[in-house]
């Protein structure tokens, strides 16, 4: 960015930030969105569940009974302990243990942390690429638009899993095998992110084309504001609604994609398991009766994805003025 652009971007607030925050919060709690939130019981429940899962993942070292990565605490003698209500051994493994004697509850909490990390990071990555290209495409139009949108079309014709497998394969081929586990999380974030940007780009492009022709954008052009500043400060805030909806639902999809890849063995390594890896490990023991090793991570995954999806559904309705 040129100097002129960064100069235009500076904002000199009239209100103190604290007063703006209070003002903003008052507007929010008085607004239609908060009302629509309160009146939808399913959404409130989904939000509570989502929050509990997020907070547990965030503060995993504090809330989980043990640290599943700490090999020193593991005791192979605890392996294959059933959940307490099936067979109470008094060892305190609420959801039982896996083949290594690892506490399943702790493994799930830490696994959720990994799943969410990959989910958030990849969606953020997809958002940055998608919003940038979408704004560029929608605002500039013409050839730029045509090129970006054709790339998006090509991208869409490959399923996300296939792209992720492809990238994973390339990385595995290029890097020495002892480094695979270190880069696994980055490979996942990149692979899932790159297969999700198109939705963001298309949505932002559509909204941007509408906003670009509105008179407030023309007024900014008459003043001679730099196009990049117009895109970021004028257009972007007005296209964020749909982006938020896609990001929420996209988060659920990203978590699922990560789980699928990990289940297929190309995602997170067993040394740093995500929910998908846990299910993958657990499915080996399904036939031999140790069902809990696969079922509980699976349930956690399903609950997380369902709650986030419900939240996204509500958000889509709440932000759509036609349905209000």
């Amino acid at each position: 960015m040129t100097k002129a652009v960064s100069d235009d971007l500076e904002i000199e607030p009239r209100l103190t930030p604290a007063r703006r925050l209070v003002d903003g919060l008052r507007r929010f709690f008085d607004g239609d969105i908060w009302h629509s939130f309160k009146s939808s019981r399913i959404t409130v429940v989904a939000t509570v569940i989502t929050l509990v899962i997020f907070l547990a993942a965030l503060f995993a070292p504090l809330v989980s009974p043990s640290n599943p990565y700490d090999l020193a605490t593991l005791n192979l003698l605890d392996a294959f302990t059933a959940p307490v209500w099936v067979d109470d051994t008094g060892a305190g493994f609420l959801l039982g243990t896996d083949d290594q004697g690892r506490d399943m509850l702790s493994a799930i909490i830490f696994g959720t942390r990994v799943s969410l990390l990959v989910g958030f990071a990849s969606i953020f990555f997809a958002m940055v690429i998608g919003i940038s290209l979408g704004l560029l495409s929608g605002y500039v139009g013409g050839l730029t638009d045509a090129v970006i949108m054709r790339i998006a079309d090509i991208q869409l014709s490959f399923p996300a899993i296939l792209i992720a497998l492809l990238i994973d394969g390339v990385v595995r081929g290029v890097l020495p095998s002892d480094r695979h586990n270190d880069v696994a999380v980055w490979v996942l974030i990149f692979a899932i992110g790159i297969s999700n940007w198109v939705q963001f780009a298309r949505t932002v492009r559509g909204s941007c084309m509408v906003e670009r022709n509105k008179e407030y954008v023309q007024a900014a052009r008459v003043i001679g504001i730099h196009p990049i500043v117009i895109m970021l400060r004028h257009v972007l805030p007005n296209v964020m609604g749909p982006v938020l909806v896609i990001a929420t639902i996209g988060l659920a999809v990203a978590v699922l994609t990560e789980a699928t890849l990990s289940f297929l063995g190309v995602g997170m390594p067993p040394t740093r398991p995500s929910l998908g890896t846990l299910v993958n490990t657990g499915q080996n023991f399904l036939a031999s009766g140790e069902w809990w090793i696969a079922v509980f991570p699976g349930l956690a995954l399903a609950t997380l994805v369902l709650a986030v999806n419900l939240l996204g559904d509500w958000l889509r309705d709440a932000l759509n003025p036609k349905l209000r």
Partner: peptide, 22 residues
């Protein structure tokens, strides 16, 4: 209804040209 950015405060809308032309 379209010529003012709905996400901006009136102050910032009016100040925009002053800032842009320094």
């Amino acid at each position: 209804f379209a010529s003012l950015n709905p996400r901006w405060r009136v102050f910032d809308i009016i100040a925009e040209p002053i800032r842009a032309f320094r």
